[in-house]
Design a protein around this nucleic acid. Structure first.
Length: 646
RNA sequence: GCCGGCGUGGCGCAGUCCGGUAGCGCAACCGACUUGUAAUCGGUAGGUCGUCGGUUCGAAUCCGACCGCCGGCUCCA
């Protein structure tokens, strides 16, 4: 297994006629020659400067993972004769290979496949590259229809178009695959891998094509790296909001209500209300006005908006009432806000008009994609629509971006980048000029913000381009958070106007924006970000009292009343259990702070504060505890208060 | 929606392959103990085995449909 670490930017001079590997340190797995990734067996036509590939680098991991995918395919073919193999690329953290296997393969078969792979690794089979004409390649892969299709389409195994009339084939042992390479020198250089799961996947990613069996695995440059990755997976599992939501009694999905429809329990409801209340406060300060709209509407509204044209499949089917009139559950709030704007004539003096609503919408998500609180069928958007003049648009977008980032930071997220999504060709309305104009305005606004901007070509909504803010959570995963969409289309479709200072009619521009996106999803993201240990200001319970014996309950209640009077959420655990058990219960409930109260405390006003990390601070007066927690909560701090060591 | 897996008291699981009418731990409740920083002891109650249908003398167990969950694919205004 490779284990070397190469100096950055090392290059080596290679004499003519020598294979690349001859000049490089042992343990190198591939090389870059004239900018191209090559096998170590590659012989350049003339002397060249070559750069070794470190197995830990992105290129190195790619080669390693792709090579491991070959061994996976080889193992599956040996175990299941008659297997037809499709493609097997490296992906983030690992690799997969798609197969059409005669017998069904299940997760429990992975152990056997893994064993076979390790046998192949032991054989140390060299990966040998050869160039074949298309005709020869078609013959070589006569019984492999997927490979033949790739050859006939002129693509290589990774779906990129290969140059020239030949294709490259890699053989190790008896097994051959159509592949651009490069690969590690031999199978013995692999080993830090693990097969992770089996799933279905469509050939070429198209749902009209046959479904194949996809086997996923992960592979790393060393066992330590693999272990670290598996640990990250465990950490993500530990933070899973579905598990935490259940364990902390925050929310559930009753089967009787239906898939993707959540109910929030008291504790989850409290956290959610605290989230929403703070958002409301900030929106109010930022000049938003609050509106309410119904959950159902006649079809006509979404015919005008175009949603029924583009997204009818994603809407719940209509209800027929009043002699055939169709009503829909709303999948979006925008048309309703538009009708509020349109309810009377508007003056330029009212712009920008910012209408805000925690608007609950319903979307018919496919049954297979519903996932916890992050992908649901009923969700509440922190939705606002800003009606503005063209002239005000740039300034409005700029202050909006600042507002968005500022607010997200208050919830404890601080690592962002932005993505600019442009016109989705073939699925968009409006002229190129309008799109270009809107895109450019967004780009300029983003340029004034000190957060990196990336492009997402074709990722816009059908009515306009958007900027989305992506946030990295505590374990480095990125989540799409806020979206800001510029829209010239709806003002036209709904014939929106305002009277300008020139006494003429003008058309406003609309900005659609949601900061949380969906409250439910944001709730899930925060739950995972904090692993259920919400910052004090969002904690459903802030201070827990544990009486040592029954006779201390009354004193605890008095203290709790004082804490409540100071604005804290305090509870007393009066269960008839041992102190140890009550401490354990507090830890499991992720209670931010716990005070054990017995005879000593009653006599001395000196408390030992235990935080949910298990840290204890002794000799703290009750007033200091209260002051510390009030300060921590009101500052929305994400750090626990330090009361000094015991 | 598609492929695969799964569904047993509130939760976590055993029993399912090889049909013979459910068991463990935690939680809940009751009692004893009155406890000093992650599980005190004893007892009680709780399940038409996701739903409906089929096979069978007999179904948690075999078959089918549906509902729901999980992992992917596709999708995400």
């Amino acid at each position: 297994m490779p284990s070397l670490t190469l100096p950055e930017g090392l290059t080596v001079e290679l004499p003519e006629g020598e294979p690349v590997g001859a000049a490089l340190p042992k343990g190198t797995i591939a090389a870059r020659v004239e900018g191209e990734l090559r096998d170590l067996s590659f012989v350049p036509s003339e002397a060249a400067a070559i750069e070794p590939i470190d197995p830990r680098s992105d290129d190195g991991l790619h080669v390693l993972r792709h090579s491991t995918a070959h061994v996976l395919a080889q193992a599956v073919c040996e175990l299941f004769p008659g297997t037809r193999y499709a493609i097997g690329p490296a992906v983030a953290d690992g690799f997969y290979y798609d197969f059409d296997i005669p017998d069904p393969v299940h997760a429990k078969d992975l152990a056997a496949i893994d064993r076979k792979m390790r046998q192949i690794v032991k054989r140390k089979q060299p990966f040998v590259r050869e160039e074949l004409s298309r005709a020869d390649a078609l013959e070589r892969f006569a019984d492999q229809p997927f490979k033949r299709e790739i050859i006939e389409a002129g693509d290589d195994a990774d779906g990129e178009t290969a140059a020239g009339d030949t294709v490259s084939v890699y053989t190790n042992g008896e097994w051959a695959d159509l592949c651009l390479g490069p690969h590690v020198p031999h199978t013995g250089m692999l080993g830090a891998f693990k097969l992770t799961n089996v799933a279905g996947a469509y050939w070429r990613g198209d749902e009209r094509n046959p479904q194949l069996t996809r086997i996923y695995g992960t592979a790393w440059a060393s066992q330590d790296d693999l272990d670290a990755y598996l640990h990250r997976l465990q950490e993500a599992e530990r933070r899973d909001h579905r598990k935490i939501g259940h364990d902390l009694d925050l929310f559930s999905f009753p089967e009787e209500i239906g898939s993707g429809l959540a109910v929030f329990h008291p504790k989850g409801g409290l956290i959610r209300r605290l989230m929403e209340d703070y958002s409301r406060k900030r929106h109010e300060e930022a000049g938003y006005e609050f509106v309410y709209t119904p959950h159902i509407t006649k079809a006509e509204l979404f015919e005008i908006s175009g949603h029924l044209t583009w997204f009818a499949d994603g809407m719940f089917p209509p209800m027929e009432l009043d002699g055939g009139t169709q009503y829909y559950l709303k999948p979006m709030n925008c048309p309703m806000h538009i009708l509020i704007y349109r309810s009377r004539t508007r003056s330029y003096r009212e712009l920008p008009l910012r209408l805000f609503e925690f608007g609950t919408v319903y979307r018919y998500e496919l049954s297979g994609v519903v996932h916890g609180l992050t992908r649901v069928r009923g969700l509440t958007m922190d939705d606002a629509h800003i009606f503005t003049s063209h002239e005000q648009l740039g300034d409005e977008l700029q202050s909006l971006l600042t507002f968005v980032l500022d607010l997200l930071r208050d919830y404890g997220l601080d690592d962002f980048y932005m993505e600019l999504s442009t016109k989705p060709e073939g699925k968009a309305v409006g002229s190129d000029e309008e799109w270009e104009d809107a895109t450019e305005t967004l780009r300029r606004a983003a340029g004034t913000i000190d957060v990196p901007l990336e492009m997402d070509p074709g990722g816009g909504a059908f009515y306009g381009p958007k900027i989305s803010v992506q946030a990295r959570d505590a374990i480095g995963r990125t989540w799409q958070m806020s979206t800001i969409q510029v829209d010239f289309q709806f003002p036209q479709r709904f014939d929106l106007e305002y009277t300008g200072d020139d006494n003429a009619r003008h058309r406003p521009v609309m900005v659609h924006r949601a900061l949380f996106g969906s409250v439910e999803r944001f709730f899930a993201i925060l739950t995972e970000h904090y692993a259920g240990a919400f910052p004090l200001w969002l904690s459903p319970e802030q201070l827990r009292f544990v009486p040592v014996a029954d006779r201390h309950v009354e004193h605890c209640e008095e203290l709790a009343a004082k804490a409540r009077a100071a604005g804290l959420r305090a509870v007393v655990d009066d269960s008839k259990e041992s102190v140890g058990k009550k401490i354990r219960a507090a830890q499991l409930a992720k209670a931010p702070y716990t005070l054990v109260v017995g005879d000593q405390e009653a006599a001395s006003d000196a408390y030992t504060v235990r935080d949910r990390a298990g840290t204890e601070s002794g000799g703290v007066t009750f007033d200091r505890v209260i002051d510390g927690l009030v300060e921590e909560a009101s500052s929305r701090s994400i750090a626990q208060t330090d009361f000094g060591s015991a």
